[in-house]
Every structure is written in C-alpha cells, then in structure tokens.
Design a protein around this nucleic acid. Sequence first.
DNA 1: GAGCGGATGTAATAACGTAACGCTTTGACG
DNA 2: CGTCAAAGCGTTACGTTATTACATCCGCTC
Lengths: 139, 139
Amino acid sequence: MPGILEDADRHCAKTGVRLTPLRRRVLELVAQAGAPVKAYDLLSQIDQTATSAKPPTVYRALDFLMEAGLVHRVEALNAFVACPQAGHGHAAVLYVCESCANVTEVQGSRPGQENKPAGFTVKRSVIEHYGLCADCPHP
Amino acid sequence: MPGILEDADRHCAKTGVRLTPLRRRVLELVAQAGAPVKAYDLLSQIDQTATSAKPPTVYRALDFLMEAGLVHRVEALNAFVACPQAGHGHAAVLYVCESCANVTEVQGSRPGQENKPAGFTVKRSVIEHYGLCADCPHP
DNA sequence: GAGCGGATGTAATAACGTAACGCTTTGACG
DNA sequence: CGTCAAAGCGTTACGTTATTACATCCGCTC
C-alpha cells in the first residue's frame, strides 16, 4: 500500500481539512496493518510512543478519517481499514476474507437500488461480503 | 406482523430444530418490536417475567434464531430484527429508516457479485441501506 | 438408574464506545 | 502584537455490547 499517507496529505490539503500528526499516525497504523484493525489495538500501539492514549483519542481520529473518506469502518467486525483511494464517493463495497483477513475494496456501482422500497431515499450503505479470497484454500 | 411465531413453529418442526419456550419468547419480543431491538432491551423485557436473565441467555437465543434464519442482525446498529419469511436464503437486504427506525427487508438478487474480485467466494453478505422511508419527511 | 447431550442459569470479565470537562493550539482579525 | 473563537486533544468516568467458563437441569437412551 504505497503512498496512502501522501495521498491523504494531498487530499486534505485540497479539501482544507487538517491531517494533524495524531490523525496521520492513526491513519499510518491502519494502513500498515493491511487488514481490519480494532480501535483498541490502535490504542495500544499509540501508547508505545505517547505517554498514554485513551479511547476518545483514537475514536476521534477515526471519526475524522472516516469523515474525510480515508478509512472505512467494517461494521460486522467492529474494525477499520484504510481506504485505498482517498475520498472517492462513499459507496465502498468490501470483500473480507475470513481466512487471511485481507480486505478488497471495490467502488459500488450505485449499490442496492434494485429492489428498493418505493419512496425510500438511501443516504448511506453498508455492503460487506465475507468469504474466502483467491489465495486461501477453499474447503 | 401476523403469524411470525406460527411460521417459526412450522419452520422449526420441518428442519428438526428446537424452538424452546425461551427462544420463542425472544423471537416474540423481537417480532413485536417491529423495529431493530438491542440485546439488552430484550434482556430487561425478559427479566420482567423470569427471575433474572443474564446476557448469555439472550445472546444464545439470538444466535439460535439467526442460525435458523428467523432473525437478522443489523450490524451497523448492534440490533436485531425479525425476519418476515422464516428461513429463506440468507441473502437479506435491509432498508433502515433513520427517522422512524422501520426496517424493510427485501430478498437479495444474488447480491454483490458484480465487481467481485477474481476467485473470491462469498459465504455471507451484510447489506444495509440507511436513509428515509416514504412515510418520513424528506428535508 | 447411569450416562449422555443439549439447553439454561450464573458469575465474572472482556471488548467496544461515548459524555463531559478543561486545557492548549491554531488561525483570523483589528 | 493582542485578543478572541474554534478546533484539537488529554483525562476521568461511565455506558453499552458481548463472551468465557463453569455449574445445573432436563429429556433421552441403554
């Protein structure tokens, strides 16, 4: 995952939001992981450098990064992944391998409007597929 | 929501699993709610009848009901809804109104296979759309 | 009745997330 | 430069969500 931080720097400069050192550090940790990371895991990793980070520290950073479109929350895992393309539209579709934990993100093609109930206005979608990726043994 | 419990009885008889009084009671509470319910809300409702239910009681019942295809978990809400059609395929797509909390379930048309990464085998999908239903005021 | 497996009770604790408050930093403006 | 407001962050405390581990009970078969 090369250049995620640089992309983020550029993206934030363009949109006028502040990628502070703390936020950048959290993004770095999420990107390094290359798999879904738990908030409290980030917390303990930050702890090693700073004196003592508390939950709000990391949750605030994650909120910012989600807002900025730099990370996604994996709802069914209570975890977070770095978004490979900073600030695309918010229509991410995630493919999560249950064996190796790798996550592939594809951009949703106007997802889920097929059988939509009449009059429903979609503001946000959670689309996560769980299974086995090509590199993991299929039973 | 008529007949959910009867449907569940029939479905369990057919598939040979045991819908015990406790499990039936939990299903009843979820169905009555007609909206996503939290596990601990169920817990306190059970408490009023039984002496004292503990978290594992309700989580075990919910696990069973999900396994049986009688309830769905709403991942982004940490909540549960009754499934209107007992034990269809597990391809539910949920439309959740953020104003009135009403949930509409539609059966997924082989969801999410469009841009699927090569070689990925989907075992389970989480598809939840959040927004406003037809009956709620659109801003 | 002995033994077995599934279901449930119970206690304790882990994991996840937020509210509220106050201090510090930042950046705009006169 | 001084001041002010807003944003960022530290900290305490707490609330919510979920699981582990072990004990007990119940229905069944032998």
